[in-house]
Design a protein around this nucleic acid. Structure first.
Length: 275
DNA sequence: CGCTCCACCTGAACGC
DNA sequence: TGCGTTCAGGTGGAGC
C-alpha cells in the first residue's frame, strides 16, 4: 500500500491510541515477515510506555520509555487497524497485535509479508540500516532545488528511476512519482542529470504539494491501504495519470495517457505535456 | 560505483 | 467452475 502519505496517515491514526499509553500485551502470530520479528520482541515491548510516534520516509517509529524504538514498515500490502472494545477474530494475515492499558487493540496485518516489525536499540535509529541510507524528507525545508540538482548531478538514469531511489529523496513511490512528474511537466524518461534549475524548482514544489494533498485525503486506497479506523483514503480520485492509461490528459485535453514500463514498474504520463 | 533486473509473497482480475 | 497468466503502493541483493 504505502508511500509516504499512506504511512503518515497511519501514524496520525495511531497517535491518539498510542502516544502516552502503556502497551500491556504483545502477541506475535507470525515471526517470518520480510525480516524475522526478534525473539525477545514481546518482552522488550511489554509494559513499555510510548513516548512519541515519528515517521521517517515510509517507516513508522514508536519511541518507548526504555529508549528503544519499534520500527514498522508496511511493504506493499501492510495495514494497521485499531480495534476498540471487543475486537473481532484476527484474520489469517494479522501477524502482530498490541493491546494498550486503555484497551485499544492495534493490529498489524500484511498478506504479502514484504513489510516488517523490528526493534531498534536506544539511540540506534539513525544508524539502523534501512534508515541510514535514506535521502532527505521531501516535506522538510532541507529538500530544495539546489539539493535535488546536486543529488542528480551526473546521473544517467531516468527521472522516474531517480525519484524512486530512496537515497535521492525518501518516501516517494510509484504513484506519487508519476503524479509529481506530470504536475511538473517533466518526462519520466528524461535523463536525471540534465534536470535544469527552473524544472527542479517546479518539481520540488509539486512533490511537496502532491504529498500534502494526499495526506489531507487520508492517502490513496487502491486495494490494501486503509486508515487505522478502517476507512478508505480517497486521494486515488485525484490521480491525473496513475492508472489512467488511454484516458485523455486533463492538461492538454487531447492526448491519451500512455503507459510504459521502467525498472519493471508501470509509468503513466502525457507525452505532450511532459517533455 | 552506477545501473538494471529479479526475487521475495499473496491475492485479485482477467482470458479461455 | 476452474485453471493459467499477469499485475500490484517496496526493498535490497546479484550481476554486469
Amino acid at each position: 500500500m504505502p508511500e509516504l502519505p499512506e504511512v503518515e496517515t497511519v501514524r496520525l491514526g495511531l497517535l491518539p491510541a498510542l502516544e502516552g499509553e502503556v502497551i500491556k500485551e504483545v502477541i506475535v502470530r507470525r515471526r517470518d515477515l520480510r525480516t524475522p520479528v526478534p525473539e525477545d520482541f514481546e518482552e522488550r515491548v511489554r509494559d513499555q510506555k510510548v513516548l512519541r510516534l515519528d515517521r521517517r520516509s515510509k517507516y513508522v517509529l514508536i519511541l518507548l520509555e526504555s529508549g528503544e524504538s519499534i520500527i514498522i514498515h508496511l511493504g506493499m500490502s501492510g495495514r494497521i487497524r485499531i480495534e476498540e472494545g471487543n475486537p473481532p477474530e484476527p484474520d489469517k494475515h494479522d501477524h502482530i497485535e498490541f493491546v494498550t492499558a486503555g484497551r485499544k487493540c492495534i493490529r498489524f496485518g500484511d498478506p504479502r509479508r514484504f513489510g516488517f516489525v523490528d526493534l531498534i536499540e536506544a539511540g540506534g535509529v539513525d544508524v539502523y540500516p534501512a534508515i541510514a541510507k535514506l535521502g532527505p524528507e521531501p516535506l522538510s525545508d532541507e529538500f530544495d532545488a539546489t539539493l535535488l540538482i546536486d543529488k542528480l548531478k551526473n546521473k544517467t538514469t531516468s527521472m522516474k528511476a531517480a525519484l524512486m531511489d530512496q537515497r535521492i529523496v525518501a518516501g516517494l513511490g510509484n504513484i506519487y512519482v508519476n503524479e509529481a512528474l506530470y504536475r511538473a511537466g517533466i518526462s519520466p524518461t528524461r535523463k536525471a542529470g540534465k534536470l535544469t534549475k527552473p524544472k527542479a524548482v517546479k518539481l520540488v514544489g509539486v512533490i511537496k504539494e502532491v504529498l500534502v494533498e494526499a495526506i489531507k485525503s487520508g492517502g490513496s486506497s487502491l486495494k490494501d491501504h486503509r486508515q487505522t479506523d478502517g476507512e478508505l483514503g480517497y486521494f486515488q480520485h485525484s490521480f491525473q495519470v496513475y492508472g489512467r492509461e488511454g484516458e485523455t490528459c486533463n492538461m492538454c485535453g487531447k492526448t491519451a495517457i500512455k503507459r510504459i514500463v521502467q525498472q519493471g514498474r508501470s509509468t503513466f504520463y502525457c507525452s505532450a505535456c511532459q517533455q
